[in-house]
Amino acid sequence: MLISNLEIVPGMRVRRHLGLIQGSTVRAKHVGKDFMAGLKNIFGGELTGYTELMNESREAAMARLQEQATALGANAILNVRFATSTIAAGASEILVYGTAVELERMGV
């Protein structure tokens, strides 16, 4: 599955446009990590645990995006955007959306 945030892919042409698809996940941090982050708030610096958590959630959201794309019979997702929002005190939502398309290689 080709994922890109451009509207065109080098050397390829869009044969079929399959519409907007999305994948999202809501994740909460566990108490231990939250406690460590609280300590880190005194000293400042990077919160590696959170960085990893956000990364993992983003991968999960992208996996769902790809699932949808496969179900539609797409072979690429173009114009992908990410959005993150805090929905509750301890949880954030990560949303990935894009356009599912069927690409074909341009004959040279």
Binding site: P10, G11, G44, G45, E46
Partner: peptide, 23 residues
């Protein structure tokens, strides 16, 4: 760039925290 190139989505993220003094 349209011919002879492949494309791939890349990303980088970081979570930073303020310190008490800044707060």
């Amino acid at each position: 760039y349209v011919t002879g190139h492949e494309s791939c989505l890349v990303m980088g993220n970081v979570v930073v925290s303020v310190d008490y003094f800044k707060m």
